[in-house]
Design a protein around this nucleic acid. Sequence first.
DNA 1: TCATGTGAAGCACTTCACAGCA
DNA 2: TGCTGTGAAGTGCTTCACATGA
Lengths: 215, 215
Amino acid sequence: MSKGLRSDIPKPTVARLPHYRRALEYLLSMGATVISSHDLAREAEVTPSQLRKDLAYFGQFGTAGIGYDVRELISRLDDILGMSLKRPVLLVGMGNLGRAVLNHLPSYRSGFEIVAAADVSESKTGRVISGVRCHHIAEIANLVETLNIEIAVLTVPVESAQQAATALVSAGIRAIVNFTPARLRVPESVVVEQVDLSLTLQKVSFYLEPTEEEK
Amino acid sequence: MSKGLRSDIPKPTVARLPHYRRALEYLLSMGATVISSHDLAREAEVTPSQLRKDLAYFGQFGTAGIGYDVRELISRLDDILGMSLKRPVLLVGMGNLGRAVLNHLPSYRSGFEIVAAADVSESKTGRVISGVRCHHIAEIANLVETLNIEIAVLTVPVESAQQAATALVSAGIRAIVNFTPARLRVPESVVVEQVDLSLTLQKVSFYLEPTEEEK
DNA sequence: TCATGTGAAGCACTTCACAGCA
DNA sequence: TGCTGTGAAGTGCTTCACATGA
């Protein structure tokens, strides 16, 4: 398998890796030290073959006849996901939603930390909110460079989303998690991940539609 | 094509329908009245064939040689997605995140409306927050029945997520949009859609990893 | 002529099934 | 023996290419 281009990994595989990591954390908290692909797969709600195939893209992690060392595998997944070091994150937009993200992220026990925030409002600029200093949005280029930030979480009002995204891109941000319903126009090299409540509700709604045939 | 079982529709197709709807709304706001699969596909960031194939699962909506009527297609998508009537939604958990969802949902111009909220806190019970009355969590069975609610948005702390979900299920809720990192155990018949910031961050992080080979 | 709707072909992901190792 | 890692087979989604209709 050599190393393989990162872009050669199937997208569904990448999307499942965080789930494996979470399942492993859970199993670890339940006292497991070694786990078979069968048991881990059940916890992550995939098939054992799929789990083994997914891991195989990145090397060999298990012991035949035994299974996987839980701590070891978490650590390897952290390497693969780029979480070995806590990644600094910039929060843009300190409204209701921004503050909610700020308060909730630590409880996720993730490898990410919001190290700075930005907002247009003069009333928030300079204040420290939930332990994070809020800067004026004009300073983001500075923040990104001095704090070595690659990821931004965008929680501004939808009207200013594109403007903020453009500023983030020229500041050198490489990925944006976009909580606004705006579809951002950014260079292809910038990773955008959409988190959209209304699209999610619409999808859910589809599966609720009545059908005579369905059980 | 007759009618087709709802579960026969490919999941990727279902996931794209809300994007088509959004693209159409945008095009409508730009003054478009008729649109070709080519132009709509560009706006929705899919291929024209994919768009046409997706729509073909549900019938014939276009005019050969012309394209699709924008308003007409939005309306058909609303039918398909079960959004023709505004669906009532129950918000469970009135913390930071719950209030953020409450404030932001209207700006999404979605076919959904939060008609009631629930929380454990006595201090919130009975109050009206952002135009929505907050009830005690013990009342959800009542709320669900009297207001005819099928969808719940779960924004409680992770520790009480499973308990709340169980209560929602026995109250007769059919779908849960889960903003907590908890993996909910519910009957198969209940639709659960996970919205998880830390899993999203991990996925994004993967694509940022340095690779010598990549441009 | 131009764009839809759709079988057929192609591709990508998943599952199977077993060789090989502890 | 038990379970991983992996080619091979199978499945399902996407893209192609064109017949059909306006």
